[in-house]
Design a binder for these strands. Structure first.
Ligand SMILES: [Mn+2]
Ligand SMILES: [Mn+2]
Ligand SMILES: [Mn+2]
Ligand SMILES: [Mn+2]
Lengths: 220, 220
DNA sequence: GCTATAAATTAGATAAGACTAAATAAAACC
DNA sequence: GGTTTTATTTAGTCTTATCTAATTTATAGC
């Protein structure tokens, strides 16, 4: 029933899942191509194969959608990835900007037994070091509907950073230096054409939209 | 200079290193073939490739010997492997019979940074859960000349188990059940044609030669 | 030293996953 | 609606690492 997928196949499925979260259209080959850093021809190739395995719905010039089976694979890999990120961060003292790359490789090779041990050690956590939700052991995602990107908040609202949706090492490092890390308290000072003006601790920043849209906040 | 080796290449180099430890002859293709569970033709193929990379000395019908460069790769992988085994065992509560398989895959994907974190967490250990020596960060093997297989000891000698040279899950599990684990105190009661007779705690066993030869002891 | 057996190599096939270049389909533009 | 641009697919090549089958070389027995 599960003839063991390759690393590549797992990465495609995971990426399709992540790209699907942004809209409900099928994911385009070009989109996958860019995010996976392979050429579009390679994507078409792989989509055909995954389609034959009934892991994606694919028709030429249509794009790709995960089947339920494909979604379950994606969630499993995502669980590995995010548990590993948290483990590296919490237990081994990695910075949040370092964990993604390492987890990207480890996610494919850890056994279910190791996954379980890690989850146990971490107390069955629901979110990783970037605030990304960790699928539970039975592959359900926790409810995250109460978090919003900075760009959607109104002036005067206060809250704390609850998620950062970039994996870029240098961006994450930059945010650390600005004390824009998880749980940091902040207030919206202004929503402007060129960014979001915020107050954090003693500091004030004008965060470019590009960056602000990746910082999610829980208000209180 | 180091164009990143594949998992396969690393496994071949590691296996050649381990097989070389048993004698000083070049390692035969058949030997590699059996231990790596690939066909001899595949071995020949790979040896040619590794030879071109100057990682092994290879001439047709001669066998393979690691070059210094190849040996360093092998030691690096071995360090990963054994550190991981110990980590899984000590920190995550895996049994000594479970760790080998897991480490076999992880050894190829951990970064030098993760290797260092693990070594640090473990206090820069010199031996893994089977008593196998762990190469140091600069790839030196600790001196292990004071340990001998059970089959070489004389009647009356006492000591403790210091190394077990099998990775077979079921054999290791069996040994656990018999309390024949690292540090177990024992005394040689007899050296016989069909095995070594030992006393461990309250128990006495006649260990078949096949098994006894894999149990190494430090005497006192 | 010849012969039988065992070991190793060669040759050719296959599968996975990437690529380039060319062809085709869809979308956007006016 | 025809034309240009963009996206996608097809066709064919490459690399890595396997395999099987056939051949060659080495070793062991007598
Ligand atoms: Mn990955
Ligand atoms: Mn994350
Ligand atoms: Mn391995
Ligand atoms: Mn070991």
């Amino acid at each position: 029933m599960t003839p063991k997928l390759t690393e590549s196949q797992e990465d495609y499925l995971k990426k399709i899942f992540l790209l699907s979260e942004k809209h409900d259209n099928p994911v385009s080959a070009l989109d996958i191509s860019e995010h996976l850093k392979v050429k579009p021809a390679s994507v078409t190739n792989m989509l055909k194969k995954l389609s034959e395995l009934n892991l994606v719905d694919y028709k030429p010039y249509y794009g790709a959608r995960l089947t339920r089976a494909g979604e379950l694979v994606a969630l499993e890999v995502l669980r590995h990835h995010r548990l590993l990120e948290l483990y590296l961060s919490e237990i081994l003292g990695f910075g949040w900007e370092e964990v993604h790359e390492e987890a990207e490789k480890l996610e494919h090779v850890i056994s279910e037994r190791l996954e379980a041990k890690i989850a146990e050690k971490l107390g069955h956590p629901t979110h990783d070091p970037h605030g990304d939700p960790i699928p539970s052991a039975d592959l359900e995602l926790p409810d995250d509907s109460h978090r919003y990107p900075l760009t959607r908040l109104k002036v005067g609202q206060k809250g704390f950073i609850s998620r950062v949706t970039t994996q870029d090492t240098d961006s994450l490092n930059m945010l650390s230096r600005l004390n824009l890390t998880l749980k940091a308290q902040l207030e919206i000072i202004g929503q402007e054409r060129n960014g979001v003006r915020v107050e954090v601790e003693q500091d004030r920043f004008l965060l470019p939209l590009e960056l602000a849209s990746k910082i999610w906040v829980e208000t209180h």
